[in-house]
């Protein structure tokens, strides 16, 4: 697949922005500046980046409770995201949702979700709407290995297959459902093989290889746009951090330090950096430049969020029902 340099650099930039945004969030959480629950995507950036790079602005995505990466990759505004994480008035949800509920309807981001696999039927509905309205948009539905064991997985895939809905089901297999290893929660090793139960297309890709993800995404998005129905893509990757920040697993009770370190060695960003340098797409100076730009954008987002006031207490009562 021939990709132009500008596109490749944009992939890199997106992955690095997700990483730096989350490292910042991690730091703020550790200092108790971010309230509530925070589930980080560090190590899985190539999946959201590769997938969303194959989407148009008017396509939809549904997300999980580990959703910052999806939101950034689909073009979400990091200032509004950071303001939401800090519970501020101008955050994406006006401070009502926090990390697990960030959405941007204009960008087709149907929302992070605190309920595992809840995005699956919602994606099917968005796709049904596309079909009924006669549009050529598609939906990318992100979920995890854990989510693949919910009843909603089966119900959604069956319906989407039956009605040839334009959904790409993207299983981010980060190998742990909370603290339970995939081998202890799934009856099969390769989740994409469940495609056969619905007679749909599917494939498995290295989820730490952004180009591999992009290639699979491009093919399946094109198929969906042509009206050829849903696809199940499984991206094998790994969650570097705990299930949530604050997880007390300091003694490696459910996975080993060695396992985590092995996956950190397979960092999707470092790996892509090497590809870019080896192919002469960008120089080390260029990479440094990107890093600086991202740091500067992030700094601006932080300033925006921290200067943004908290909501008024009574704002808790707003926006429950549609009113003329």
């Amino acid at each position: 697949m021939q990709l132009n340099n500008e596109f490749m650099i944009q992939l890199y930039r997106t992955m690095l922005m997700i990483r730096r945004f989350e490292e910042k969030a991690l730091d703020l959480k550790a200092r108790q500046i971010i309230p509530g629950l925070l589930h980080l995507y560090i190590g899985e950036e190539a999946v959201a980046t590769g997938m969303c790079a194959a989407l148009r602005r008017d396509d939809y995505i549904s997300s999980t409770h580990r959703g910052h990466g999806h939101c950034i990759a689909k073009g979400g505004d990091i200032s509004l995201m950071m303001a939401e994480l800090l519970g501020r008035e101008k955050g994406y949800c006006r401070g009502k949702g926090g990390s697990m509920h960030i959405a941007d309807i204009d960008l087709g981001i149907l929302g992070a979700n605190g309920v595992v696999a809840a995005g699956m039927p919602i994606s099917g509905g968005a796709a049904l709407s596309i079909k009924m309205r006669g549009k050529d948009q598609v939906v990318a539905c992100f979920f995890g290995d854990g989510g693949s064991n919910q009843g909603a997985f089966h119900e959604s895939l069956n319906m989407a297959a039956l009605w040839k809905l334009p959904v790409i089901y993207v299983c981010e297999n980060n190998q742990y459902a909370i603290s339970v290893a995939q081998s202890r929660s799934c009856s099969i090793r390769d989740i994409y093989l469940r495609k056969d139960a619905y007679e749909i297309e599917g494939c498995m890709v290295d989820g730490n290889d952004v180009l591999a993800v992009y290639q699979a995404a491009k093919e399946t998005v094109d198929r969906a746009r042509r009206g050829e129905g849903p696809t199940l893509i499984e991206c094998k990757t790994y969650r570097w951090r705990g299930h949530y920040e604050g997880e007390a697993d300091r003694t490696y009770t459910y996975r080993t330090k060695q396992e985590i370190e092995e996956w950190i060695d397979r960092c999707p960003i470092k790996r892509f950096q090497k590809v870019l340098l080896d192919q002469g797409v960008v120089s080390q100076v260029g990479l440094n430049q990107i890093e600086q730009e991202i740091q500067s954008d992030l700094q601006k987002a932080m300033e925006f969020a921290q200067n943004c006031p908290f909501p008024e207490p009574q704002d808790a009562l707003k926006d429950l029902y549609y009113e003329e």
């Binding site: 908290f310 808790a316 009562l317």
Partner: peptide, 16 residues
């Protein structure tokens, strides 16, 4: 509680 979902931001949750 008032007739709304439980909001996230501490100031809203306290009000709720």
């Amino acid at each position: 509680a008032p007739f709304t979902p439980v909001p996230a931001s501490p100031i809203l949750e306290k009000f709720y």
